[in-house]
Design a protein around this nucleic acid. Structure first.
Length: 549
RNA sequence: GCAUCCGUAGCUCAACUGGAUAGAGCAUCAGACUUCGAAUCUGAGGGUUGGGGGUUCAAAUCCCUCCGGGUGCACCA
């Protein structure tokens, strides 16, 4: 539809000997402005030397309107050309919602593009805290969106079980181990103070008694036990949210395979790295940074930048066409280093999409919830799930744009009322399910799509609220595409709310269950279409949509 | 100080990336169930889009500049 209009308008521009410009369509905000609008007349006005409305007039005069598609074309405001679809066209288009059913909204615009999505990537030194939820769910939904638009997605978790953090973990556990055995033993300065460290120590005592007091000077038992313990918990938490990574990529493998050394060598060869003060430096200033960065410390240990660079190069080497990273705003400093490194090694940074999300704060109604790290009791993601449920967690964490701070209201999330946007959406779904159950007792085969398609008199779908609803439902594929291409899942939650709202309005104005069987069937198809869109949207969001509540 | 994100209704946030009268939800007030789920719907009030300049047919959106907030700024990750 859009394409046809676009073609026709471009042809008209040529015929009128106007300069050729891109013809863009927007969806007007206000219903009075129709279903599609274009601003070509205003774009052209200056170069043509006429006022925009005159330009619009000359275009519209040449336009041949097919009234099975369009019911009106109008010039409005400063020079917009507004198009309105005919009801018949809307209803006809909506049939595909039924026929495509659970794949309505899917597309293949990415054409199987090999995409690597890396997120969470928390080192196994502790549990996921509530704030991690934003990243966990953003990645989950973005991954789903990418798949719905035809990307082949590898979901990846990058971790490091070597370095400093793990040593600290081991020392922390060992210290608690000694303390639990009744010894006076100092706790490391920067140790992990969480309660879970004590739990781990107790488990080790139950398993090994005091036999590890001496001997394990490398603390390797403590390190390995702690790592496994933490990783198990992290994966369990992720599983509760239906998050599954395809690849767990160990930073250590980059060392073992010599990839780290290789990067240093190559950078030095290109004179993008040099030795100084006993360390190896990366010439970040060549790429616009304020100063050069250390990539290998004078102790011989690399800083985090080096493996990060090597890791990203490996992603390219593994054949990914698109590399998506999700980071919290607290890691923002690492991003330029990695991108510069990638560029230094000869890869295109445009193929790396870094999504940075802002931080989360938690409130419980009026009260601010503190999650201080110094405190032994951290509020974990598991705690949050226990408190508000999986669906609310999934929905709330993606409902705001990634660029703004997210205020997570725990009291609201667990409230089972109309204030809670998750319930509003799920209620619409459950309400439809209930109507369909009703219809089934009236002998209408709502589960038989082909019979619904062939036995329904679609010309009976003509009320304003029905047409509005169908138009809204038909936006779904575009919404999915735009959410995917902009990496902005929050638009989907906004959209689904509008769908629910538009449905409730229709429901309120028009009875579905009806003595007029033909009319009833027509309206049932509208309900069914709505249910499909809500269900598909919820699927992407990892939110369940119950048949009953 | 530098980098970066942000500032929109009383509160939490949208605004399709430059379009028309800046929109939702909550809160407040006034209405709607004998009937398919009232966990719903209808209506009302509420704004100098932090301030000031600029760019153009058109700015919440782009540029400059102040003000205010978040997050980073290690030979930690």
């Amino acid at each position: 539809m859009k394409e046809q209009l676009q073609k026709q308008l471009s042809a008209i521009l040529a015929e009128l000997q106007y300069p050729s410009v891109d013809v863009n369509f927007d969806k007007p905000k206000v219903d009075a402005h129709g279903d599609l609008t274009t601003n070509v007349a205003m774009v052209l006005a200056k170069s043509v030397g006429k006022n925009p409305r005159q330009v619009a007039q000359s275009i519209v005069e040449k336009l041949s309107i097919n009234d099975s598609f369009l019911s009106s074309v109008e010039i409005a405001g400063p020079g917009f050309i507004n198009f309105r679809f005919s009801n018949g066209y809307v209803v006809e288009s909506a049939k595909k919602i039924l026929s495509q059913y659970s794949s309505f909204g899917k597309s293949n615009i990415a054409n199987g593009k090999k995409t690597n999505l890396e997120w969470v990537s928390a080192n196994p030194t502790g549990l996921l805290h509530a704030g991690h939820g934003r990243q966990v769910l953003l990645g989950q939904v973005i991954g789903n969106l990418l798949e719905w638009t035809g990307h082949t997605v590898t979901r990846e978790y990058y971790f490091n079980n070597a370095g400093n953090q793990m040593r600290t973990l081991a020392e922390s556990i060992y210290s608690r181990y000694r303390q639990e055995l009744g010894d006076e033993y100092p706790f490391p300065e920067e140790g992990y103070k969480g309660e879970y460290i004590v739990d781990i120590a107790k488990e080790i005592i139950a398993l090994k008694g005091d036999s590890l007091k001496e001997g394990d000077t490398e603390r390797s038992f403590f390190k390995n036990y702690g790592e496994e313990w933490c990783f198990k918990r992290i994966k369990e938490t992720l599983a509760r949210l239906d998050v599954k990574h395809d690849v767990f990529y160990n930073e250590d493998s980059l060392y073992k395979s010599g990839k780290i050394a290789e990067v240093i060598e190559e950078l030095k060869k290109k004179d993008l790295a040099y030795d100084s003060e006993g360390a190896v430096w990366f010439r970040a200033t060549k790429f616009g940074a304020d100063k050069d960065r250390v990539i290998v410390k004078s102790t011989g240990e690399p800083t985090y930048r080096l493996p990060d660079i090597a890791y990203h190069r490996e992603k390219f080497r593994r054949g990914f066409d698109l590399i998506v990273d999700i980071f919290g705003a607290d890691h923002i400093a690492t991003i330029p280093d990695v991108l510069n490194g990638v560029q230094a090694l000869g890869y295109e940074t445009k193929d790396v999409k870094v999504i940075i999300h802002q931080m989360v704060s938690f409130v419980n109604g009026e009260e601010i919830v503190k999650m201080s790290k110094r405190n032994a009791k951290t509020y974990t993601l598991d705690d949050l799930i226990d408190e508000v449920g999986v669906d609310a967690v999934a929905y709330f964490f993606v409902m705001r744009s990634v660029g703004t701070h997210l205020e997570f209201d725990i009291a609201l999330a667990k409230e089972q009322s109309d204030k809670n946007p998750v319930y509003y959406l799920q209620y619409a779904h459950a309400r439809i399910a209930s109507i369909l159950r009703h219809a089934a007792t009236d002998g209408i085969a709502v589960n038989d799509i082909s019979s619904m398609l062939s036995n329904t008199d679609f010309s009976l779908v003509k009320e304003k609220e029905e047409i509005d609803l169908l138009k809204k439902l038909l936006e779904f594929p575009e919404i999915v595409e735009s959410c995917a291409s902009s990496f902005e899942p929050h638009r989907l939650t906004t959209y689904l709310r509008e769908v629910a709202e538009t449905f409730h309005r229709f429901y309120h104005e028009h009875r579905v269950i009806n003595d007029d069987k033909q009319l009833m069937q027509a309206r049932l198809t509208v309900c069914l279409m709505t249910k499909i869109v809500i269900a598909n949207g919820c699927k992407i969001l990892s939110v369940s949509c119950p048949e009953k509540m």
